[in-house]
Design a protein around this nucleic acid. Sequence first.
DNA 1: GTTTTTTTGCAAATCATTTGCATTTGAAAA
DNA 2: TTTTCAAATGCAAATGATTTGCAAAAAAAC
Lengths: 136, 136
Amino acid sequence: MGEQKLFIPKGYRKTKQRESILKVLERAEYPITAEHIFMELKNDGIDISLSTIYRNLEMLTKEGLTVKSYMMNEDKARYALPDKKNYLVCEKCGKIVIIDNCPFDKFKEELIEVHGFDITGHSIEVYGICPECQKK
Amino acid sequence: MGEQKLFIPKGYRKTKQRESILKVLERAEYPITAEHIFMELKNDGIDISLSTIYRNLEMLTKEGLTVKSYMMNEDKARYALPDKKNYLVCEKCGKIVIIDNCPFDKFKEELIEVHGFDITGHSIEVYGICPECQKK
DNA sequence: GTTTTTTTGCAAATCATTTGCATTTGAAAA
DNA sequence: TTTTCAAATGCAAATGATTTGCAAAAAAAC
């Protein structure tokens, strides 16, 4: 509940590039691409190279601060803070809606019991038609 | 319940390449890569080009006969018949276990109610440590 | 401030996937 | 069946997202 506190993981240096990437990820409402971050920062007048973005996203994902995912019919990765990990995608207009109060948690126990896995994470992607597109 | 019946979607021709790709997908126990299919067929003595595999996987996915997904820390797509769409991945050994009786169905209604989406599909990926790796 | 180590930017390299095109093949029509 | 023609294949070349090498710039340590 409340704001997600951003931080640079221990052992890594604080740089303006790193901080600005986190800032973009924080204000994003759904998973975004490296290119998207690049553009966004360009708009903010922040000059950064794409490779720096990729290197940081890799690091952040390894450290568990971000989650990487792919969307249907897309060839590029998207990244988001973990709380935006589960989402609905409209097949018509592409709208993305975050699922909060993820239903999955209720099934965790069941999965643990059935398969014996010690579960550390999950990612859910749901496709469908959004209310607006249904009307058309 | 029972065997999944393979078929080439209406409007497409029956070719030995197409049939052999479906055969490999059927006997696969979890999502596999295009390269994997290529190797598998090579073993079977079937000569096929990678682009043919990619073209067919694209078609099969568009027609809904296969599902495309990406695994954590992997840069290549995997394909599977829809019944192998939801799976558990062991972060240590990489073992993949299919989730059948997908828990998601129970939440479909809730999601429909909350977001108003007309849901057409979903994909769930769960990470954890398998029972064997837990013992180590 | 100086040193040491990490991070960045740039350009070049990778690598999975896609595409153009000539050739082959399936299947509909004769 | 044979003919006919669009669809499918193979190959090589193109693409495009992501990665990497390396020298220069910037943090944090000294």
